[in-house]
Design a protein around this nucleic acid. Structure first.
Lengths: 343, 343
DNA sequence: CTGTTAGCGCCTTCAG
DNA sequence: CTGAAGGCGCTAACAG
């Protein structure tokens, strides 16, 4: 039964229904043209009988574009990206589009390759989220690849930092970090350290800048020895916390590049025998849903991650503008038990 | 510059290089046939100059199939699914395939729809993970849709429970649950309750069956009043724990349907003023990486989730067998602080 | 309102 | 080894 028959074609359906190819086509997909009900029903019945599925590839050839969106993320296992992706799916579904995902594994080179691969699929739009690094050579190649896609009529949207000439959804990392640090100052903290992401990563750099500004405004200095760079991951946070311990400093709160790092750092501090938040307070960034139940509950900056993904789809599918747009999306501080008020 | 040019076609490349269409085609994609080096280089140069990208849709039309894999998951934000998806990506990348994802939002009906939609893309294989429910009507429709896809030469693999006549990667839920419960008995626990997933969901049912078997073998009964069904999510766990508290029972350990529920339940028990694991021990299932740092660290059954995804790709891409195969993948118990030995 | 026909971009026999 | 020609499944003029 599951023998190698070939898929039923529109041709088969037309023959089975005793109508022309064109009529079958018009009856089965949203053509603006009208088909008499009697014919339409015969076609539908025949299609059902033959278990017909339209060949999207063929439609794409003639229409020049697929009903799909290409999405490039750094790591689908990371809740930051999977939450954004969830928003992309939601919005794409509303628009009747499927989404093709590619995972760049945080390698900028690979990201460029993937844009090329997805471009071949002729999607309506290409969405890139995260993984921007401060490297002009990479940026130039990425830009050229994306421009090529646009030149063929494709749309592009980024979720990350401004800087590339395409529509961009930008999470207010810097402002958010500032708000968070300000709140911590209000809570009475004075001796800060920072565990942040890789030096080249723009998201990490923006957050660090925001922290610095707020602390400086509050009269608190953050010298280099109090800043540790590591991977933007649980293990990165763990390692960075270890490095901080090695430096043997006297602290009352640790800021981090994101929640995932914060959780790794908490594990390391605990191993060292420290009580949290008793011996040390800690804060995250992002407000990842899955991490809301760690103990002590993490003070963090809430970012509406799924919203970022939706906004990117809306930008990419909306009316095009001559000038690249930036949609800024802010967050708010959520104070939980990891940073109790401190006399 | 980003003006609406059309994408360069193979035709354009051939003209630019001064060769025939056929030669250009042979030079640019893995044709078995050979092209003289001089020609090949001219073609490659021309392709580069014109910023040519092959039109995969057109290739798909003539070849009858796309270089892609279709993947249906219940919820990409759930770490269980995103970990499996990560494995799928890894294996797909090795095979040079892109992955088109669709999210069923845990609705079996929607899952069937999505299979239809993905089928239209003519992927090499269709992978379904999770969301199997015990409903013969649903199963029949799903089976028919998938059989249709197979009949056209597509490959199918499932990650879940056996029962449908397709290659299936089956995590050993039942055996794993048994191992976990046995270990808890060894640790000295006797008064168990269970917070599990929706009644119809097969994964939940299998785990429950495994727990029951081990407990029965250990002489421990698990009557219905000690079992609470809820959503397979953090909030489901939270709610189920609340229900358990309402019943006012005397317990020493709570088993759960998965880690995510366990974490939700922990939050609820804590709100009720209970110390964990002092007043109550708790165990999860899956060993979700992101959740490894909750406090107290969760005793759980480790499942190699990414491996499940990889195995599904291997099944779907490997040599076909006349009979549906089942690849069983087991886990192992990881004892952590949430279930200390109990006199 | 229906049918005929010419492509869409590409691959692949089939001759040269 | 290369080139010319037909066809993959479908849509969109164009006639009727």
């Amino acid at each position: 039964m599951a023998d190698e028959t070939r898929a039923a074609t529109l041709h088969d359906v037309a023959r089975e229904a005793g109508v022309s190819l064109a009529t079958a086509s018009r009856a089965l997909n949203g053509s603006t043209r009208k088909v008499a009900d009697a014919y339409r029903e015969r076609v539908l019945a025949a299609a059902h009988r033959l278990n017909y599925t339209p060949n999207l590839a063929a439609q794409a050839v003639v229409r020049g574009r697929t009903r799909s969106i290409g999405l490039v993320v750094s790591d689908i296992e990371d809740p930051y990206f999977s939450s954004i992706a969830a928003g992309v799916f939601r919005a794409a579904e509303r628009a009747g589009l499927v989404v093709t995902i590619a995972v760049s594994d945080r390698r900028p080179e690979r990201q460029i390759e993937l844009v090329g691969a997805l471009r071949s699929q002729r999607p309506q739009a290409l969405l890139l989220v995260g993984s921007r690094v401060a490297d002009p050579a990479i940026d130039a190649r990425l830009e050229s690849e994306l421009r090529g896609f646009q030149a063929e009529g494709g749309r592009v949207a980024l979720v990350s930092q401004e800087g590339l000439p395409f529509d961009t959804v930008v999470p207010e990392n810097r402002e958010g970090a500032r708000l968070l640090a300000e709140r911590l100052l209000e809570l009475g903290y004075r001796r800060f350290a920072l565990l942040t992401g890789p030096a080249g990563l723009l998201t990490a750099a923006d957050r660090t800048a925001g922290y610095r500004e707020a602390l400086a405004a509050g009269g608190v200095d953050l010298p280099e020895e109090l800043v540790v760079h590591a991977e933007f991951s649980r293990d990165g946070g763990y390692a960075a916390a270890g490095e901080l311990l090695r430096r043997g400093l006297d602290l009352d709160v640790v800021l981090t590049g994101n929640d995932v790092m914060a959780v790794g750092a908490m594990a390391r501090f605990r191993e060292h025998g420290m009580a949290l938040p008793g011996d040390l307070a800690i804060a995250g960034f992002d407000d990842i849903a899955t991490l809301r139940d760690v103990t002590p509950a993490l003070t963090t900056l809430h970012l509406p991650l799924a919203r970022l993904g939706e906004a990117a789809v809306e930008l990419a599918l909306g009316d095009p503008e001559p000038e690249p747009r930036a949609v800024r999306i802010g967050g708010h501080v959520v104070v939980r038990q990891s940073t109790p008020p401190r006399g």
